[in-house]
């Protein structure tokens, strides 16, 4: 199980990076970023996972019941929030770039250009 989670995380990171590197559209590129981010979620949840353990909520379980590691879940939750903010910001930037340059192809966009 654990090995599977590590392999899935590595695979997601790999395809995400491949997608970013070969991207021809900003929105596609932003999507690939979220794929990379999912890799970290899978990795973290895999690290916190324990066989035969329940959720780390002790409302109706006696304390001491085996539970998965809540720290990792807290990390993932925090990062989902940050990731959402980042994606929103990137999409807003992409929208503004499209208004001004008329294209979203990373191959045709660069911040400063040499004089002709």
């Amino acid at each position: 199980m654990n090995v599977l989670a590590w392999c899935v995380a590595a695979w997601l990171l790999g395809v995400g990076i491949y997608g970013i590197v070969t991207s021809r559209h900003y929105v596609h590129l932003i999507g690939c970023m979220t794929v990379c981010q999912s890799a970290t979620y899978v990795l973290l949840l895999g690290i916190g996972f324990r066989w035969g353990a329940g959720p780390p909520i002790f409302y109706d379980h006696p304390p001491g019941t085996p539970a998965v590691d809540p720290v990792m879940q807290a990390l993932v939750l925090t990062d989902i929030v940050v990731g959402a903010a980042m994606t929103a910001l990137l999409l807003a930037i992409a929208l503004q770039v499209h208004k001004r340059r008329g294209t979203l192809d990373p191959q045709h966009l660069r911040p400063l250009r040499p004089r002709e």
């Binding site: 970023m33 980042m86 910001l89 990137l90 001004r100 340059r101 966009l109 911040p111 400063l112």
Partner: peptide, 18 residues
Amino acid sequence: LGKSSLEGAFNFTIANAL
């Protein structure tokens, strides 16, 4: 919100977010 500042910010965000 100029052309260059948006593209610079995009590159900055992608590299640092990754």
